[in-house]
Design a protein around this nucleic acid. Structure first.
Length: 601
RNA sequence: GGGCCUGUAGUUCAAUUGGUUAGAGCACCGCCCUGUCACGGCGGAAGUUGCGGGUUCGAAUCCCGUCAGGCCCGCCA
């Protein structure tokens, strides 16, 4: 039996006889003495074998190669003087191998090097995913899985042991819901011609659990969305899903700050300052142009529409008269860092703005004494009063570069937000290890969907409207909140509607007829008739949290077996064809025609 | 659906910008070496340059198509 993990041995174990199981991370053969770095999921320890001190094990030690699997029994021995390896956690000790049992060999050339000594080498992700079992042996990925586990463990300890939450599983086979992302659908053999959908979130079930009196529910919940993939989006992902009854918004935010603080303390040893700062959605859009601002740096946007409404520069005044706005992104020190070439068409900063829909980027360079250096048309079009007001509002100092966005509000916000993030990254305005948490609150209930010419729930249609705004639902604020870390949304939630009449009004606002509402959500409306408690909740993206905590660039590096951007599993080659017999039994037939055959017809 | 990037030995990268036999580190195989820890030394094997077509006296390099992977837009309540 194994007595210890390789990576956990220390000087405390000196003179103990231990039995280890692991993989050969590296082998150094000196012709008489052989050193083997044996690795398991806890780390690496050095094994020593030579013909004089360990004659029994030496012939076996000679046969070991990279990634062979071995059982090793031996005595823990302290290292002395220069033999100590301070770079290794187990570097104070080594094991003299009394016996080495070779349990399995590697029979093919390894597709890439697994050893932690080669960790800095960037192996193609395609290969890593095909041989994921080898990739997960590598130290970085093994640590990511460990961190993920530690986060979940900390969440469970906090919610269950300190706060009385209960984990309850909700169904994977569900009724398909309209609104939101595309569903993955599953045919029912028992009910031919009918379909299940995989859950996009356990939203309705967790609300029904509140009706059931479960009071404080959580779940480590797998969710499915059949949409295109990104670095931070997989078709199946994991949410830390919570719902609680009889709690105010304030109490829910406080509990969740405590939860996240607990996780960072347990997993990273970091004490987060509390309470987390808050900003309303409205303020966030005004000051940052987005609803999940990165607050590690300033660069706040300044609205100058009222100042420039009547200015002589037609691009500004015309835009404002046409219902648009003009905002400034002031960049202190930007004059020295950002050349005109980069702001004009063809430049990298222009491109950032243009990709968000901006047609151009007007600019003013603030010089000594508040002199403004800019193109003639702006110079002439602005009065001295306007210039003074701009300097005042932007608090611009000599050296500050003012970038202007002039368009409809959405385009201005989107483009200046992009430029703001781009510039901050390039000017290194923040430290990589900074952690700026933020609550964004008071999201609007709805936004206008131009394509479908109707209101759409911004969060989801079960979100409670702010009681102050109940008279005009269409423009109402919701009691909804997002937790943001360094510009990434970690999670979001809301108080929920728990009265039938309010829920019906919200369905009506998004254009659901009574019949549709009844067909899709009748069970929920019905439940509201039987004593539903006031309740609310939140859901965190576990993959994203782990991504940020491990410094990963993609959530794929936090998931054991992720899909590629084409939504394929390179390891198992899913998805794949199924037998005709399987389809016949389900009375399902594919109408898909491969592209090549289409052309032939 | 769209834009951009990548694909060369098992692997990570080169290849003087279209010019001789496509090179190097690590891995692999063999020999040597008793204190290394990215051990060292000597030698060896290893390539349909993703695939298909084209331009050219000549293509890893240029063009077209295609496949795979990645980043982004759309999409993701």
């Amino acid at each position: 039996m194994r007595t210890h993990y390789c990576g956990e041995l220390t000087a405390q174990h000196i003179d103990e006889t231990v039995t280890l199981f692991g993989w050969v991370d590296r082998r150094r053969d000196h012709g008489g003495v052989v050193f083997i770095d044996l690795r398991d999921r806890m780390g690496v320890v050095q094994i020593v074998s030579d013909p004089e001190r360990t004659p029994e094990s030496y012939p076996q030690a000679d046969k070991l190669r990279n990634e062979y699997v071995a059982k090793i029994t031996g005595r823990v021995s302290g290292r002395e003087g220069g033999a100590v390896n301070p770079r290794l956690k187990t570097g104070d000790i080594e094991i003299y191998a009394d016996s080495i049992e070779l349990l399995n060999t590697v029979n093919k050339q390894l597709p890439f090097q697994v050893s932690s000594a080669d960790a800095e080498e960037n192996v193609r992700e395609e290969l890593r995913l095909k041989y994921r079992y080898l990739d997960l042996r590598r130290s970085r990925m093994a640590q990511n899985l460990q961190t993920r586990h530690s986060v979940v463990k900390a969440v469970r300890r906090f919610l269950e042991d300190q706060e009385g939450f209960m984990e309850i599983e909700t169904p994977i086979l569900n009724k398909s819901t309209p609104e939101g992302a595309r569903d993955f659908i599953v045919p029912s053999r028992v009910n031919l011609g009918e379909w299940f959908a995989l859950p996009q979130s356990p939203q309705l079930f967790k609300q029904l659990l509140m009706v059931s009196g479960c009071d404080r529910y959580y779940q480590v919940a797998r969710c499915f969305r059949d949409e295109d993939l990104r670095a931070d989006r997989q078709p199946e992902f994991t949410q830390l899903d919570m719902e609680m009854s009889f709690m105010s918004e304030e109490e829910i935010l406080d509990l969740n700050e405590a939860l996240i603080s607990h996780v960072f303390k347990e997993v990273k040893g970091i004490d987060l300052p509390r309470p987390f700062p808050r900003i309303t959605y409205k303020d966030s859009m005004e000051r940052y142009g987005c609803d999940r601002p990165d607050t590690r740096y300033g660069l706040e946007l300044v609205n100058v529409s009222d100042v420039l409404a009547d200015c002589g520069f037609k691009v500004f005044s015309g835009t404002i008269k046409g219902g648009g706005i003009v905002k400034i992104l002031p960049i202190p020190g930007g004059n020295d860092v950002i050349s005109n070439v980069r702001i004009k068409p063809g430049g990298d900063i222009f491109r950032e703005a243009a990709e968000a829909g901006a047609k151009g980027l007007a600019y003013i360079r603030v010089r000594e004494g508040g002199e403004m250096d800019t193109i003639g048309a702006i110079q002439k079009g602005l009065t001295d009063e306007m210039k003074a007001e701009i300097l005042k509002r932007t608090d611009a100092q000599p050296g500050t570069l003012l970038l202007f966005g002039a368009a409809d509000e959405g385009t201005v916000n989107k483009s200046l937000d992009r430029v703001r993030q781009f510039v901050a990254k390039e000017m290194k305005l923040y430290e990589e290890d900074q952690l700026n948490f933020l609550w964004v609150t008071e999201f609007p209930m709805f936004e206008w969907n131009e394509d479908e010419k109707r209101l759409e729930a911004l969060h989801h249609p079960f979100t409670a409207p702010n009681p102050e705004d109940i008279d005009d639902l269409k423009t109402a604020r919701a009691v909804a909140y997002d937790m943001v870390l360094n510009g990434t949304e970690l999670g979001g939630g809301s108080l929920r509607i728990y009265k039938r009449d309010v829920q019906e009004k919200v369905f009506a606002a998004i254009g659901l007829s009574d019949e549709e509402a009844q067909e899709k959500f009748g069970f929920l409306l019905n439940a509201f008739e039987y004593g539903t408690p006031p309740h609310g909740g939140i859901a965190f993206g576990l993959d994203r949290i782990v991504m940020l905590m491990t410094g990963s660039e993609s959530i794929r590096d936090t998931i054991a077996f992720p899909k590629t951007q084409q939504a394929r599993c390179l390891l198992t080659d899913a998805p794949s064809n199924v037998d005709d017999a399987q389809l016949e039994e389900l009375e399902v037939k594919s109408t898909y025609v491969p592209k090549s055959e289409e052309d032939e017809e």
